[in-house]
Design a protein around this nucleic acid. Structure first.
Lengths: 121, 121
DNA sequence: CCTATATATACCTTGACACGTATATACCAT
DNA sequence: ATGGTATATACGTGTCAAGGTATATATAGG
């Protein structure tokens, strides 16, 4: 059984979860809104369902999927101890998110220029 | 460039991050505390460093790694919209349990059709 | 310089997984 | 039953990441 973290590592699954925050959706609605092939949607929904992120009810031929809270609360719980730590660095987040927004789809692979050693103490 | 979610999908990396919450650690300390082979530690630290989760400073032959807040704050930011849903869900659950309290041992099959999807084009 | 210690990287193998295409199943209507 | 719609699954394929082992780099001390 995969951890909640592995489940939300997949961008399409995160998109589905975000979409379901507002309200439950049928597979077709998800497919249309996220412009994702139907088998892809169904397969990701299956993963999400088996991991407890969503549940479904039948409505004629449709299946309506909606969120279940537990797995994301597990992530939340893991994240909790870090909050004390980063409360001192709030302003740094906005700069970081701005950078992420502008870079976004950029894929850059750097060779070995990692950390410049600097004497400490 | 992998997203923060992909980075924390790996259990060993989450363990390293948890360990660094308390204070900065050298590679050897991480290796010993988590009982993880040294190349494994170094490789995960490299991934964490390139993703901005940690930074290092040199102390003689040692490298001391410490947390950086931004990527986990990004996760936190993504998680935020779900928190409203959780509280709503808890409320709904309580109302539901109140209803079930009077009905008690009834089997429940829900067939609500709240959203009526339109046929596709 | 030589050795020991601490950390990083290279190479290989293996397994997981995401995607596309095709097909199967379920349900409704005529 | 037939056809149409909605969703699920099976299969083949390519990619990518994690682990293990061996080795390379850096630094301290004699």
């Amino acid at each position: 059984m995969a951890s909640a973290f592995a489940i939300i590592a997949e961008p399409n699954r995160r998109a589905i979860l975000r979409l379901l925050v507002s309200s439950q959706q049928s597979v077709g609605e998800i497919e249309r809104r996220l412009r994702m092939p139907q088998p892809t949607v169904s397969k990701h929904l299956r993963v999400l369902r088996e991991a407890g992120f969503v549940e479904s009810t039948v409505d004629a031929q449709r299946r309506l999927y909606r969120l279940k809270p537990e797995p994301l609360q597990e992530v939340e719980a893991w994240l909790a101890p870090f909050r004390r730590f980063w409360s001192a660095h709030v302003d740094a987040l906005e700069r970081h998110l701005d950078r992420m927004e502008s870079i976004d789809t950029n894929e850059k692979e750097d060779k070995e220029k990692t950390t410049r050693p600097k004497p400490r103490t």
